[in-house]
Design a protein around this nucleic acid. Structure first.
Length: 295
DNA sequence: GCCCAGGTGAAGC
DNA sequence: GCTTCACATGGG
């Protein structure tokens, strides 16, 4: 007998699910038959863009309130007033173009450990390859979960404790290369409580950033990704190769600023939701770089 | 073969 | 403080 699914629709305007799920924030979403299948925490989910909102399907889980969708609305951040965020962006030509090109792009709110671990694995990797590494890691070390007939088996993201129990050579079999010792160290320090990711929610962005930077393999860019994608600190402005390219081209007329100057500009020019602006710039320039991939 | 990828850390100026 | 380089692995 097929696994029973519960289904609902969230009414939300200005939410581009495809843009949001493919914009390099999260690495576990697969398009399938016009919908998106993925895993949030310990639940398999299918999402679909529908008229006026987002449809969600997930297996009925014992001992869970079937009408409680807060785990999903929190992840998708459907309550965020996007118009308010967009209105806070600087009124300049680059931002107008980015917003016009990425209408409905949102920031997700992810679980800190998965986000941290994923971005430790992200350095000098293409998004497709990050997805492959994360997928291999989950298949090997993640807890299997209830999935309806059809989709491939799904696994939770492995806990820090589970990864801490791995040998470095095992992790390397997931093709993560030199990032393996970094992930292993992070897993150990999170598992033994030396780093308390839950506690960081209560800290200031600066303090949380300093704490994340103590981990090997976590520099300014990855720390900012975790602050932005997992903790919702919208002052965080990750600068990767794409965003650097975009900032230099759009705001510095091709004259190369020093890293210090670029960071200074990034954290002052874009207002209280700078991290959101960053995501628009990132998605915008990547879209522009591969026009054949759209449509 | 070459260059690049949602970088980081160490070493050299 | 800024620049350069190694670091695994895979794709174009």
């Amino acid at each position: 007998m097929p696994l029973a699914l519960r289904k609902t629709i969230f009414a939300v305007r200005e939410y581009d699910l495809a843009a949001t799920l493919t914009s390099g924030q999260a690495f576990r979403w697969t398009p399938r038959a016009g919908a998106w299948e993925g895993v949030i925490g310990s639940r398999w989910v299918r999402l679909r863009q529908v008229e006026g909102g987002i449809q969600a399907e997930t297996p009925l889980v014992d001992a869970a309130d079937p009408d409680d969708w807060r785990w999903l609305t929190r992840y998708l951040q459907t309550e965020v007033d996007l118009e308010h965020v967009l209105a806070s962006f600087p009124d300049d030509e680059p931002m107008r173009a980015a917003v016009a090109a990425c209408r409905g792009l949102r920031l997700l709110r992810q679980e800190p450990w998965e986000c941290l671990a994923s971005f430790i694995l992200s350095s000098t990797k293409q998004i497709v390859q990050i997805q492959q590494i994360v997928s291999a890691l989950c298949a090997r070390y993640g807890e299997p979960m209830a999935v309806p007939l059809g989709p491939a088996p799904a696994y939770a993201f492995p806990s820090a404790a589970r990864l801490a129990a791995c040998a470095e050579t095992e992790l390397r079999e997931c093709k993560m290369g030199f990032r393996a010792p970094h992930l292993l160290q992070a897993a150990r320090r999170v598992a033994d409580g030396e780093v308390d990711l839950k506690e960081l929610r209560e800290w200031s962005a600066d303090d949380a950033r300093r704490e994340l930077l103590r981990l090997r393999g976590v520099g300014p860019k990855i720390a900012d990704c975790v602050l932005l994608f997992a903790y919702g600190f919208q002052s965080a402005f990750p600068v990767d190769v794409w965003v650097r390219k975009a900032l230099v081209r759009l705001y510095f007329s091709k004259r190369r600023p020093t890293p210090r100057r670029l960071h200074e500009f990034a954290t002052t020019h874009f207002g209280p939701h700078a991290g959101y602006a960053q995501q628009y710039l990132f998605h915008y320039i990547r879209q522009a770089a591969r026009p054949w991939a759209s449509a």
